[in-house]
């Protein structure tokens, strides 16, 4: 049975190849401004995003406002992955069966030069991460990008200095911080629920702004939640993958 299956494994491959290449000719021509994808739903995003959501970056406008529910799901996916890694590898307390600093980080990576350079770099990386989050509304950027950059800075500390002297963020804390990030997101949505608007409708937020500005504040708060979750979970996954297990 197993051998038979392996022998016919190329069949689905060839079938997929045939239909993929065949269908390419009938798709709308690439870069055609009159293709359905460019004329049906998206024009509103382009033409009214600035006015309706206060974000001149339309990707952020769609991400954090028009389709904010998708982005909530996406943030939850990250948190789920963090929790999943925790459950699979069961790494919780390095204190209990105590992998030492060496075991936790088995490869010698640091040296004086690397150490000195990273000390110079890391504050700027974190600053840049915050800039990317805050300016996500007017330039490329946003919570995910900023979170990934910030997590990179923390992981750099881990790589260069080993775990013990670095930022002491144990998986127990990072998973809690990740949950707080998503809670900030759902919390923003729930506030508008209490002001008789729909979930994630930022126009219900009790802030002294109007129209686009109010919605901009809402999406900024949501992006902050995303930033927190992404930073925490990326560090969490890195830690779990490099640590010994609880069992």
């Amino acid at each position: 049975m197993q051998q038979l299956l392996q022998r016919i494994a190329w069949l689905p491959f060839v079938a997929a190849a045939a239909i993929l290449f065949y269908a390419a000719r009938d798709l709308p021509t690439m870069a055609d401004p009159n293709a359905p994808a460019s004329t049906h739903v998206s024009p509103r995003y382009i033409e009214s995003a600035l006015e309706e959501t206060g974000a001149s970056n339309m990707v952020t406008a769609v991400l954090a406002d028009y389709r904010a529910y998708d982005t909530l799901g996406e943030t939850v996916v990250i948190l789920t992955a963090g929790l999943a890694c925790l459950l699979v590898l069961g790494a919780f307390t390095p204190a209990r069966s105590g992998p030492t600093e060496k075991e936790a980080m088995p490869y010698e990576f640091g040296s004086d030069i690397v150490d000195a350079t990273s000390r110079l770099l890391i504050p700027f990386i974190i600053l840049f991460a915050l800039y990317v989050v805050v300016h996500g509304h007017t330039s490329p950027g946003g919570g995910f990008q900023g979170g990934a950059i910030c997590a990179a800075a923390i992981i750099l500390v881990r790589l260069v200095r080993g775990r013990a002297p670095g930022l002491k963020l144990l998986p127990t804390y990072t998973v809690a911080i990740g949950s707080i990030g998503v809670l900030v997101y759902t919390g923003t949505g729930l506030v508008s629920l209490f002001f008789e608007k729909n979930f994630l409708d930022y126009s219900g937020l009790p802030l002294p702004f109007h129209g686009g500005h109010l919605r901009e504040m809402g999406s900024l708060s949501v992006e902050t939640g995303v930033f927190i979750t992404v930073t925490a979970v990326m560090v969490l996954i890195f830690d779990v993958l490099t640590m010994g297990s609880e069992e």
Binding site: D70, V77, A84, L87, V88
Partner: peptide, 23 residues
């Protein structure tokens, strides 16, 4: 009621199911 949203939730359910089933 949205096709892409379905994909996002499909992934949430899948990833959590992977972790739970592997325990």
């Amino acid at each position: 009621g949205d096709l892409f949203n379905l994909y996002v939730f499909l992934e949430i359910s899948s990833i959590s199911a992977y972790a739970l089933l592997s325990s």
